[in-house]
Nucleic acid binder design. Structure first.
Lengths: 108, 108
DNA sequence: TTGACATATTCCTATAAAGGAATATATTGG
DNA sequence: CCAATATATTCCTTTATAGGAATATGTCAA
């Protein structure tokens, strides 16, 4: 068996750094055509289209055509499961920090 | 070029569901030997060892030997970059929720 | 219809991974 | 040292990429 498909869920989709870059860009710039992503991130156009397809399939972005251009925008809801999972670990590192702080104060 | 190595960073490491299960288990149970993970999650022992190796390489877990057993524990700090990245999108879905709420109140 | 622009898809290659089975390594007790 | 327990590694097969190059599809303007 091979690795799970990149399109199987958001976890797999965002494992690819380029796709995270695209999401970062779209988060800042709202709805944008492919060409602007290509230019802004310095990637090849086919590469961007392919990454957008993966993001589209897992619902991390939506798209609509406007004339010759296709506009993409993020759907932040799709990132939520990822955030929720990571957030369950937040209390543990917060705990660690408290302990580190206490130790520092004890020594000072 | 193929996909990035699962050991290249936490994003790639946690893309695999089994590895997330292992982290979930370790988060709840603190330091545990491999055998308990195997039993608790119903996975094959070599499979668990291999997944733990990946988690170890990206720093998501630590280990120490105690007699015949090797005890693993999570290092929640390693999940932090993941949380931080996803958290940057939180404001967007919060925004969406506010708008949905406003609309609902306007209609009600 | 034709040409230009914008995006998507296909074909190719190299690479890596996950699971299963078998085996190797490490540690302890006798 | 030997047997038993606990864990790690290796070998194999199947599958899925990501990027590059080339090409196809879609849309508009004249």
């Amino acid at each position: 068996m091979a690795r799970a498909a990149t399109t199987s869920d958001a976890f797999n989709a965002v494992a690819e750094p380029r796709r995270r870059e695209i999401l970062n860009f779209l988060a800042l710039h709202a709805e944008r055509p492919v060409g602007e992503i290509v230019e802004a991130l310095g990637m090849e156009q086919p590469s961007v289209s392919k990454h957008l397809r993966v993001l589209l399939e897992v619902g991390l972005v939506n798209s609509r055509r406007e004339g010759r251009k296709v506009l993409y925008r993020i759907d932040p809801q799709a990132i939520r499961p990822l955030w929720e999972w990571t957030a369950t670990f937040e209390k543990y590192w917060r705990h660690q920090l408290v302990k580190v702080k206490e130790r520092a104060e004890g020594e000072g």
